[in-house]
Amino acid sequence: MLSIVRERLRQGHRTGKFPKVEPTLSDRFRGRPQLHSGLSPQQREQAVAACPFGALSQGEQGLRIDLGRCLFCADCPAAEQGALSFSGNYRLATRRAEDLCYSDEVYRLADALNERMLKLFGRSLKLRQVSAAGCNACEADLNVLNTLFFDLARFGIQFVASPRHADGLMITGPVSENMRSALLETYAAVPEPKLVIASGACAIAGGPFRGSEEVCNGVGDLLPVDLYIPGCPPHPITALDGLLRLLGRR
């Protein structure tokens, strides 16, 4: 018993100060991409062709990026060509799929739920997590939110064991053909009104497996999504930031 107390003293108090204090991330962390202006049409074309996941396209005002498709690759070929660079900005979550796309500085972060939903879920949100062919990175970094540093429960958010106890689904993975019906059945088991959160590039648009005949390219065509959290996997702070925005806490 004494040794437990002694160890507890050594380990100290580790709960993080987020959201009151901004987190310190690695200087190599890759956050929201900034598109560079002044590229020739040919350079833009090259950049669009270079992304293996089709995250870039030609917009009216130059390049356009879709964060639902972006994997924030360390060796992003478009970045190597000078078309974009990664900032340290971890705030990425949006409410609508179209908000994930931008061509200038304006990026519309997630709004809070409407008044009725906030009244229901604002102080207590129970989520059922469904991994639908997620690679266990998204899952692991959502699990991390339960550890004492992030301490998700202090915000009234909790992962629960049954869809019957849940207010919504937190979905990861590109939704394999073999998980499709289990996902839809789990959704059906959640009582109304309910939320759907797509966490990670796979759940949003199929991620690295987009186009495989065995995946559905994410949740989009199957269920109505209320919150998109980009990243491969999203940093836990990105996910937490998104959840707090949804609940009107940021």
């Binding site: 991994s131 062919a133 997620g134 993975g173 590109p174 394999s176 053909e177 073999n178 998980m179 289990a182 497996f209 186009g211 495989s212 005949e213 065995e214 995946v215």
Partner: peptide, 11 residues
């Protein structure tokens, strides 16, 4: 198992 199959080898 098999629920997570994404056909990696095939693609």
């Amino acid at each position: 198992l098999g629920y997570q199959h994404r056909a990696i080898e095939k693609i």
